[in-house]
Amino acid sequence: MTDDLPPGRGATGEPEGVPRAAPAPDAPAPTVGRGGRRRDQALALGWLVAAWLLLWGDVSVGNLIAGLVVGVAVLLFFPLPPVTFGGRFRPRELLVFLVTFIAELVSASLHVAAVALRFGYRPRGAIIAVPLRVRTDLNLALTAEVISLVPGTLILDVDRARGVLYVHVLDVRGPEDVSGSRERVLAVERRIVRAIGSPAEVHRLDLEPVERRNHQ
């Protein structure tokens, strides 16, 4: 496979002439109490267990216990800076996110399998830069994890200061595939924020991406 970029794209897959996203303004870190810290650790443990089950592809008691042990070990021996959760859970939007994720997982798996079985076909790849609209550490991490779990896409780097994900996508045939891949990443971000984001973060989704505004 060769990582060629379609014409008219920069080294990161961004359209030429589109300004880069400005760095997020610095803000003082919120104070996290003991109860909030425990809540954040419980949420992190839940996501680690979910990622473990998805990686194994089998929901069983043994895998659940192993995921809990691995998750606790990661949080204990590799502590990360506190990531506060100021959002709210919305069951309907969370269900939409889960159903859509499973559908995309199946569709992408079938597409990658078809590419792999196509005799003599050499798919091209591209690296695209996707500026997210909600640049919190939690949203960057969750969006990157979900994108990496879908076959055919892989997170190569994360620009935390500018809130940009650099994604490698498989089987790129033209500029429309690059635009489509970027839209899919933004759609994942939108579903995550609508499922667990704060009202302010949900409102921020109404702001159109820079690229879309420039193409109107």
Rank of each mutant, 00 (worst) to 15 (best):
M1H: 11
T2W: 10
D3S: 13
L5T: 05
L5R: 10
A11K: 05
A11P: 04
T12C: 05
E14W: 08
P15W: 11
A21E: 13
D26P: 01
A27C: 01
A29H: 11
R38H: 06
R38Y: 08
D40A: 15
L43K: 01
A44R: 13
W47K: 02
L54F: 06
L54T: 03
W56P: 00
D58V: 15
V59M: 09
V59D: 03
S60C: 04
V61G: 15
A66E: 09
L68Q: 10
L68P: 05
V69H: 10
V70G: 04
G71I: 03
A73Y: 03
L75W: 00
L75Y: 02
F77H: 06
P81N: 11
T84R: 13
T84I: 04
R90C: 03
P91V: 11
F97G: 00
T100R: 12
F101D: 01
A103N: 06
E104L: 05
L105F: 13
S109V: 08
S109R: 12
L110V: 13
V115A: 08
R122A: 12
P123I: 12
A126M: 10
V130P: 06
V130M: 11
P131I: 09
P131E: 06
L132S: 01
R133S: 06
R133L: 08
R133K: 06
A144R: 01
E145R: 02
I147R: 02
I147P: 00
G152V: 10
T153I: 05
I155H: 03
L156V: 04
D157C: 03
V158M: 09
D159F: 12
R160D: 02
R160F: 06
R162H: 14
G163D: 09
Y166Q: 09
H168A: 05
L170G: 05
D171M: 06
D171A: 13
R173E: 02
V178I: 14
S181D: 15
R182H: 06
L186N: 07
R190E: 13
R190T: 14
I192G: 03
A195T: 01
G197Y: 00
G197L: 00
P199A: 10
P199W: 07
E201D: 12
D206R: 15
R213G: 05
N214M: 15
H215T: 12
